[in-house]
Every structure is written in structure tokens, then in C-alpha cells.
């Protein structure tokens, strides 16, 4: 564990807590894309399939449970909570998740670190699922970014949520750079490229978020 990865995990945790805070306290999910939240639930479910079979550390297991629990409870709130669901604007949240999930699944089958299409063993299945979750996480924010472009007024909590979500992966990139220079054989092109793509998708959001912070004006994304 290094400071970049710890900061990345804490930033990721904070983004989830900001969203849960918004939904749980003001009972509103205005401006939040349910499609993105559902994609994140799929990301965590496919990434942490081995949560009970491969134990790493108490921290690792606790964080996995928090991410799984929070992502599924956010989806539950937005779908079924009688007050929260009323503030979900489904007409603005029109991105079709399958056009993201299918290419990621195909890509995970074609391009993964195990290349050799060995016997279809459980470990290969887990690895394909893990790679799928990596690709899916890179694009999962797209429905949310599309929705932000449409909903003119972005409230502070939503802006902070998206910012923290983008910042966590940027910190992970620093973590990978650090591990590359401090550990031997630490080369993971697939993870690095998908992490980079993920962070670059936030580039314009970061720009407008910084501008709104610098000029102390409301965050507005150009149409």
C-alpha cells in the first residue's frame, strides 16, 4: 500500500459517501444518473466475485464490502425508495447501458492478461469478469456525464461526487507509476490504459469544475 493508493481509496470512499449523504439526508437524487449507479453496481459485483475466496487483508475486505453495499443501496434508493425515486429524472437519463456492457464483455474475452485461451476454468472466468469490470468502470461515468450536460443546474453535491470519482482514478494512476518504479515486474498495460481512458473522460468536467471553483460561479457544462 502506498500513499497514492490510500488517497485514491479514500477519495473513492468519499465520493460514495457524498452521494449517500445527498440521497439519504435530503432524500433527493436530482441530477444523478441511475444508469451510472447500476453500472457501478455491476462493476463491483464482477470485480469482487472472489471476495470470500481470496482474502488479502481486513482493509481490503472491508472496503470491498463498503463499495458493494453502497453501490447496491444507492441503486435500491433510486429505484424503490418512495421519496427518492420521485426526484429521479429518467427522461434525462437515456444512455443505454448495454451499449457499454457488451463491448466491454467482448473486449474482456479478447484482451486480458491471460491471453492464452486455456481451458474454461473458474479462474479464467473470474479473470475475464475482473477484466470486464475494469473496462466497464472506465466508461461507467458516461451516462452521468451525458446527464450533467443536459441538466443545466448542477448542484454542489453532485459536482463534488463526480469530481471525487474522477480524482480517485487519477490518484490510482500515480499509485501505478509509484509501483512501477518501486516493484519489479509491475507492468499492467491493460489496467493502465483503461485507468487512463477513465480519467481522460473526466478531463472536460475537471476543466469546467476548476473554472467554476476559480471564478466562484455555479458549475455549468456547455450544452
Amino acid at each position: 500500500m502506498n500513499i497514492f493508493r490510500l488517497a485514491g481509496d479514500m477519495t473513492h470512499l468519499l465520493s460514495v459517501l457524498v452521494l449517500l449523504l445527498k440521497i439519504h439526508t435530503i432524500k433527493s437524487c436530482a441530477g444523478i444518473s441511475l444508469k451510472t449507479q447500476e453500472l457501478y453496481a455491476v462493476v463491483f459485483a464482477t470485480r469482487y466475485l472472489d471476495i470470500f475466496t481470496s482474502y488479502i487483508s481486513p482493509y481490503n475486505t472491508m472496503m470491498k464490502l463498503i463499495f458493494l453495499g453502497s453501490s447496491f443501496s444507492i441503486v435500491w434508493y433510486m429505484r424503490y425508495h418512495k421519496i427518492v425515486r420521485r426526484s429521479y429524472d429518467k427522461d434525462q437519463d437515456t444512455f443505454r447501458p448495454y451499449i457499454l456492457m457488451l463491448p466491454c464483455l467482448i473486449l474482456a474475452l479478447l484482451i486480458n492478461e491471460k491471453f492464452t485461451f486455456k481451458e474454461i476454468s473458474t479462474s479464467f472466468f473470474l479473470f475475464v469478469m475482473w477484466t470486464f469490470s475494469l473496462y466497464l468502470e472506465a466508461v461507467a461515468i458516461l451516462p452521468q456525464l451525458v446527464m450533467l450536460q443536459r441538466t443545466r443546474n448542477i448542484d454542489n453535491l453532485t459536482g463534488q461526487y463526480v469530481f471525487l470519482l474522477g480524482a480517485y482514478r487519477a490518484l490510482y494512476i500515480l499509485n501505478w507509476i509509484y509501483r512501477y518504479f518501486t516493484e519489479e515486474h509491475f507492468v499492467h498495460w491493460i489496467t493502465w490504459i483503461s485507468g487512463l481512458v477513465q480519467t481522460l473522460l473526466y478531463a472536460d468536467f475537471f476543466y469546467y469544475y476548476f473554472q467554476s471553483w476559480k471564478n466562484n460561479v455555479k458549475l455549468q457544462l456547455p450544452a
Binding site: 500500500m1 473513492h12 488479502i56 470491498k64 499509485n175 519489479e184
Partner: peptide, 10 residues
């Protein structure tokens, strides 16, 4: 974490 692999990452 064992050297070089990503298993310990979230």
C-alpha cells in the same frame, strides 16, 4: 502485497 500483481488493489 506480493510483488508485481494487482490482486491487492480494489
Amino acid at each position: 502485497s506480493s510483488n508485481g500483481d494487482l490482486k491487492d488493489e480494489l
